[in-house]
Design a protein around this nucleic acid. Structure first.
Lengths: 333, 333
DNA sequence: CTCGGTGACTGAACCGGTTCAGTACGTGAA
DNA sequence: TTCACGTACTGAACCGGTTCAGTCACCGAG
């Protein structure tokens, strides 16, 4: 250790000085710290990680989407930004991986655990009968789930009460006079898709709607557009569409315009995730706004505490807020 | 080493077997490999990195944007996906960091180098008088630049001939009869912004346009919208707008619709990066399409070769392709 | 039968930290 | 003066790999 030589002490003393633990006098500590900063020195992370009980100082996130089509959805980058911001304060890095499916996602976790690449992971997009929480139980890899609260296999989670938001949307549309509402949802095997569907049917029943269906798409603009085209071509088309993400809503808006269906006078559109996109298009999209960046911060903080050995309780995010904009309104024939 | 014990050999032999180098017989090698796979064992990355001449098996990328606003731009995630895909084959991980400005970006590089967190980095968004290439010369941190070819301080780079695309766009719009074209560009201090501006003025001069200005915005939808509003409110507004990214073009389209300016009959719009967004909105946006995912793959491959000690030559990407869509056309009064 | 050479493998050093068991020194009390 | 004790520090083991210098058995040539 060159710092030790420069300061004329043993490397043990340097270690004590740098980690702020007793064993060196205050004057020696300051001398060592000033030498270290003069030399622009910082402890080698691999060496630290290798020492008994050492951490690698990184956490991982796998994004399970086809690699080429990824990147349009604002959701992930916002989440990553939030996670990042929280981790930076603790000097922890973020490893990002793109996987094609859950199988290769699990393979990544296994590799990360076996090679000691990360200290823990954040699991996103919880599925019905998701194999990941169980797999995490076997791997020595602490994890926090974004989703739930059910089906997390005992892993701490940060969940959202989507039901409340769904109810708010249904009441809002019903109050505008809509009686036929179709929801263009995400894939059926996502847990939150099911939660929203249940809440949607229940709220529709209570509101006494004439029609309230859920059809499934895959979050891509293409699928959103295709589905919308089919729905609007029906004999008695719905007068309001609720999309499970902003990208599909955007595509739906495009298709409506293409088919000559006026928004909002003939069709109201509500998007789930609110991003800048919703504000940029005309008419601007009514959306359920969530603080995705904030979710990232919270989930990172939970994982941090888990890694520190603390007990971490499940947490609920603040409710999404309905942002009424130009794409919703009463029917005006 | 538990594998060594299980196989009844020394850990040196295990190392030879796993790394496919001579020193063990073929039968022993197979026995060791099968035991390793049975135990789900993989070499500890920190230990590997710590050994003399060891690599940490990760490369870093810093995205220098305000954390909260990031994520709407498809560009980065597509780039990240491409980089990822290429690295995965080599068993290399990607560290992602979000920084607020170039200063903190440099701090991240210094930390990564000092702590031995990554083997190399990819530098994006090259600026005029960019301090990063020079800083990389001092740090022992191999780097490849996405941008250039000038101002890279000797670092290998992957660059794009934006000038050719600019000329194509100007010719295309001039052929449609447009005489007043304004370009809504990215920040002035990006190298490629300057390259495009030069090519734009030159092409406009040759085409004998009446007006050809460049105004600068910051890639956000808000700025794109604001700028468009100002331009369209002028006494003699431009009849065609060329945006430096898709998000600003989308915002411009929204503003035009809001102001009652018909696209494309009264105003043509061209976007730079082509993403799904351009195809989803109505009218769909004419765009210059680049294979950002492919750029990511190439730049990752260049960095890989650099890390292997090979000499890496600068490379040029394929030219961006103009995709004519609904947002451009002749003026029809 | 001996010698040289080669292939297979072992033992130990090394990377750069952390941590624990000692050691040396100074101080205050008996 | 002696003893106990706390503080400041050292030396060495340890983490889990890679690599290099040996060692040993075996084989073919002379």
């Amino acid at each position: 250790m060159d710092i030790a030589k420069a300061a004329g002490v043993s490397k043990g003393a340097v270690s004590y000085a740098l980690n702020g633990r007793p064993g060196v006098s205050e004057t020696t500590r300051e001398r060592i710290l000033s030498i270290a900063s003069d030399l622009g020195w910082a402890p080698s992370n691999p060496a630290r990680a290798l020492a008994p009980g050492g951490r690698v100082g990184a956490i991982g996130m796998v994004v399970d989407r086809p690699a080429r089509s990824l990147g349009i959805e604002p959701f992930f980058m916002q989440l990553v930004s939030g996670v990042e911001t929280e981790l930076a304060a603790a000097g922890i890095d973020l490893m990002l991986q793109v996987a094609e499916d859950i199988g290769s996602e699990l393979a990544v976790y296994r590799r990360w655990a076996a090679e000691r690449r990360v200290d823990g992971v954040v699991i996103v997009d919880l599925r019905v009968d998701d194999p990941r929480p169980e797999a995490m139980g076997v791997l020595p890899l602490p994890a926090v789930v974004l989703g739930g609260p059910g089906g997390t296999g005992g892993l701490p989670c940060l969940y959202t009460d989507d039901g409340a938001s769904v109810r708010e949307v249904v009441h809002y549309l019903a109050a505008l006079g809509h009686r036929r509402i179709v929801r263009v949802a995400g894939p059926e095997d996502f847990v939150h898709t099911g939660d929203r569907t249940l809440a949607f049917q229940e709220a529709a029943r209570r509101a006494g709607l004439e029609e309230a269906r859920t059809v499934h798409a895959d979050y891509t603009g293409e699928a959103g557009g295709r589905t919308t085209r089919r729905l609007l071509a029906a004999a008695e088309p719905p007068t309001a569409l609720v999309y499970d993400n902003d990208l599909m809503a955007l595509a739906g808006l495009g298709v409506a315009s293409e088919m000559g269906v006026k928004v909002p006078s003939q069709l109201s559109i509500v998007a789930w995730d609110d991003s800048a996109l919703c504000r940029l298009v005309r008419p601007s999209l009514t959306a359920i706004s969530r603080d995705v960046f904030g979710h990232g911060r919270i989930v990172a903080e939970m994982l941090n505490r888990l890694l520190a050995g603390e007990r971490v309780e499940d947490r609920e995010t603040p409710l999404g807020e309905l942002q009424p904009r130009g794409s919703t309104g009463p029917l005006t024939p």
